[in-house]
């Protein structure tokens, strides 16, 4: 087998996840040694045509042009891995999905007639079959390296989809909800960050989206009993993974309530 050819694509996003790849300073040589990065605009303007063995896709689909472009990415890629909350859940920009899109455009742009966007921000998997979704806002670079390595070797990436609490306990943290009364989304959030926020005494914001068996309704019932107000619960569930179920359904139950 020849060296694998890797492409990195950007859709609607902040570039932070791609940056994680460039941020792999200690491992960049290993990456360059293992694959040929032939399409990565954030790193180099030198671009080679497909096909590609592995395409890494960041960002969500928010324009008609991107809806067509993602089809092309699928056609020229053997495997597609999506990275980050935008690509896997629509991102923070998916808040538009629950609002009046035309009115939002009028509020933001002086001349909205020049703007051509879709009314929704949707994850890549809503458009094409995806081989693996790596969660996070931003993703964890260690996990990204494991995913790339696993795809090169043709095995399953060692990424768990249980709660963030399990990482929190493994790290030896004191639970911020139990000991400080701070609301935390850890019990319903997909692991991957190593419980970063609770480690610094803040509640989890749910950057990695819902865990595989997330039950936000049970968590929310308890947080209400602890005195957390509904608008705060709505905001907590309506961040970077606002459109991901079951966060969305639970958030809606508290929208406009007080």
């Amino acid at each position: 087998m020849g060296r694998a050819r890797l492409a990195v694509w950007k859709f609607a996003s902040c570039d932070g996840c791609q940056l994680s790849l460039l941020d792999c300073e200690d491992e960049l040589l290993d990456i360059a040694g293992a694959v040929d990065i032939v399409h990565f605009l954030e790193a180099s303007s030198h671009v080679e045509p497909g096909p590609y063995d592995l395409s890494i896709v960041e960002g969500s689909v928010t324009t008609p042009k991107d809806a067509a472009r993602i089809q092309h990415v699928r056609e020229v890629s053997k495997a597609v891995v999506t990275i980050g909350a935008c690509a896997t859940a629509g991102g923070i920009q998916a808040l538009r999905n629950f609002a009046d899109h035309a009115e939002m455009m009028r509020a933001v742009y002086a001349n909205p007639q020049y703007i051509e966007t879709l009314a929704t921000s949707t994850p890549i998997a809503a458009h094409i079959p995806v081989d693996f979704e790596l969660r996070g806002c931003p993703i964890d670079k260690g996990q990204l390296l494991q995913v790339i390595g696993a795809f090169l070797l043709g095995r399953k990436p060692p990424i768990r989809s249980h709660s963030t609490c399990m990482e929190c306990k493994a790290r030896g943290n004191v639970c911020v909800t139990v000991a400080h009364g701070t609301p935390c989304l850890g019990p319903v959030t997909h692991a991957g960050c190593g419980a970063l926020c609770p480690t610094y005494h803040r509640g989890c914001y749910g950057c990695f989206g819902p865990s595989d068996a997330a039950r936000p309704a049970a968590l929310v019932r308890d947080l209400l009993e602890r005195g957390v107000e509904r608008p705060e619960l709505y905001r907590l569930l309506s961040n970077f993974n606002a459109a991901a179920e079951p966060f969305r359904t639970e958030a809606e139950r508290h929208d406009g309530q007080d």
Binding site: H162, S163, C165, M166, K169, A170, C175, G186, P187, V188, A213, R215, A218, L219, R221
Partner: peptide, 13 residues
């Protein structure tokens, strides 16, 4: 099962 969040804290603690 309606009240439990399935977070796993009980087992790790």
């Amino acid at each position: 099962a309606e009240r439990c969040v399935g977070c796993g804290n009980c087992t790790l603690a």
